[in-house]
């Protein structure tokens, strides 16, 4: 089973990297980019019988730091 885990910064957490990317887009001439938030994508191949609870635990214990990040799991 293939999974995609998308990790993003929580609202309210400042994202200096996103800001730098936003400025770079502006300097390339792309106008009207109001905001950029950088995140991470993990593509996992796991055993077919992996439970939702196990997947959630992988996200909470390692893939995301829930102090600053949210995650969502997409099944491929």
């Amino acid at each position: 089973m293939k999974l995609r885990v998308v990790v993003t910064l929580k609202n309210g957490v400042l994202d200096p990297q996103g800001k730098a990317i936003q400025h770079a887009l502006g300097s390339l001439g792309f106008e009207g980019v109001a905001d950029v938030r950088a995140g991470k994508i993990f593509e996992l191949e796991v055993a077919d019988d992996t439970s939702d609870e196990q997947i959630d635990e992988m996200c909470r214990k390692l893939l995301a730091n829930t102090v600053i990040e949210n995650y969502r799991v997409e099944r491929q």
Binding site: Q17, A20, V67, I68
Partner: peptide, 17 residues
């Protein structure tokens, strides 16, 4: 220590990058 839960919070990229 923050990642292991022994201390609260997190350390993020410096604001000035």
């Amino acid at each position: 220590l923050t990642e292991s839960g022994l201390l609260p919070g997190a350390l993020m990229r410096n604001s000035g990058l």
